[in-house]
Design a protein around this nucleic acid. Sequence first.
DNA 1: TTGAAAGCGTTACCAC
DNA 2: GTGGTAACGCTTTCAA
Lengths: 345, 345
Amino acid sequence: MTLADVAARAQVSPATVSRVLNGNYPVAASTRERVLKAVDELDYVLNGPASALAAATSDLVGILVNDIADPFFGIMASAIQSEIGGPGGRAGGERLAVVCNTGGSPERELTYLTLLQRQRAAAVVLTGGAVEDPAHGAAVGNKLRRLAEAGTRVVLCGRPPVPEAIAITFDNRGGGRELTEHLIGLGHRRLGYIAGPEERTTTRHRLEGHRAALAAHGIEEDPRWTVYGRYDRLSGYEATLELLRRDPTLTAVVAANDTVALGACAALRDSGLRIPDDVSVAGFDDLPFSIDAVPSLTTVRLPLSEAGARAGRIAMGREEAPPGGIATVRGELMVRGSSGGPRVG
Amino acid sequence: MTLADVAARAQVSPATVSRVLNGNYPVAASTRERVLKAVDELDYVLNGPASALAAATSDLVGILVNDIADPFFGIMASAIQSEIGGPGGRAGGERLAVVCNTGGSPERELTYLTLLQRQRAAAVVLTGGAVEDPAHGAAVGNKLRRLAEAGTRVVLCGRPPVPEAIAITFDNRGGGRELTEHLIGLGHRRLGYIAGPEERTTTRHRLEGHRAALAAHGIEEDPRWTVYGRYDRLSGYEATLELLRRDPTLTAVVAANDTVALGACAALRDSGLRIPDDVSVAGFDDLPFSIDAVPSLTTVRLPLSEAGARAGRIAMGREEAPPGGIATVRGELMVRGSSGGPRVG
DNA sequence: TTGAAAGCGTTACCAC
DNA sequence: GTGGTAACGCTTTCAA
């Protein structure tokens, strides 16, 4: 079942069928009718690889995420995808938005980029924090350059800028700082911090913001107050217990993201502590379910979907790139419930 | 930059380069070395569309999900993907696992299937409940048949069986029944039910289970006790308020999934009711965060990742299809905390 | 407005 | 074990 079959049935040349199907060339209405009818009757579906080969581009748009089970990425991916104009978007250019789950692994990230390069993807959006290994950074930079050279549009979303691409970044430092300042304003002077994986940009930036806040208020940080972990619930649970073991007098815990904060809350509850009477907890992300899990949780509301939507539009060339190729979007502090004061004693 | 360039540089024929790159044909070690060296030096990447065209198959594997922002799908997708043997999986066959977000829309589902068909996908996995519109069901069935005829492996995961594909299904009826029976065992006789979207299979099956439990215990259901909604938090919130307005004497609320249950809990809290002292809440899914949100929430622990893993293996032909092409996996009831008794009065 | 024909970059078959 | 070469199914100039 090929273009030629359709052409034969519609009594036209393959070229005409191609033009009708791509809708990018004037074709007489009556001819179009006939072709469309033939397509319908034969239940014909264009051969993607053949099109891509001949046209030297494909309609694939790759979205790389660190963890597909984390709504943080789900929300962004969803926003990107609706702007891609794929199924459900505006008619015409049927793009295939595909989300690729790297699991946070540098190798997989690179492999996916190669796979996307191999597919001659129309665009690639990389979301979330990056691994800070210099070698890996260079490798990714190279790949991105090659992709761009081959005509693939590359956009970063929630990921630190690199020279090879346009970037929409979150102000992780500012958010981290604001979060901790809020707790300090509540009277806390002894704050534990649960960081994300080491060597991840978001981990470092958020932690830097936290420390800046401490420094600004003349609080000397105890090295025992920081624990590194993964961006998941169990990690938050374990880190909190570890924190409490190291220093039971902590009055607040800051978590590198909401999922981690959830685990922290569970650990606090299991330790017989109450939130926010005994300990205040702050997260970072504002995921839809955290408000249910911890009504008093204070988080930074990251504009996940707005950032994603913008990245999607830029990737499709429907929005101009920001000046300098970098746009930084700010989070807004979400104070929920009464985040209590510090524990006495 | 083509295969020919590499061949020239390595002083071999294009055919040999192809064989080395695909690793599916004996090539002398020394020749292989030379070719690999040339590939490396030229930074050559195979042209996917050209390969797919010539070989008449691609290395794309599509995973359709109803809502990418919902961890329910994220967990399954993640499990499927690791079994696909894509990046990070076992070496060799670099498959591109791509997740496609239908948003629960029948049209998008169909469009994605067409797009995947156009790409000559190696396999397609459809996850989650299906829309129950007969016309749409027929259309999907047709597409699946065509896909299968074209050599694409089609597997359903957490989705009701159709003749055109192998299916791993969840026992939604049984789970729903068990959940409600648990609440009845606690003494509840007046139970509200927040269903998912109408015309969705999971919605219907879970509700049927619920009603079977009521019937088995001689409880006559009040029509006011069931409200339909979407599978999200806000829907759960609103539905609960509606339920409470219709009948303030309810002592328990069953939600069609955990996300909905979270919204229900929020609504109960906002109504001044305590959980589980005043009202018991039950969800359906066992998502990782629900335990934090509502420690006393009772849910069915669906084997999301096991089901996904199995679907992935079957899609890759690494595991035999279940007898009759259908495997039903059972959920396990998760009773957390003390799910209290009914409210007095 | 339409048709003819030359690629696009691989793969796979057939020789050697 | 390796090379030559016809497909693969479409897009796109160039003519008509």
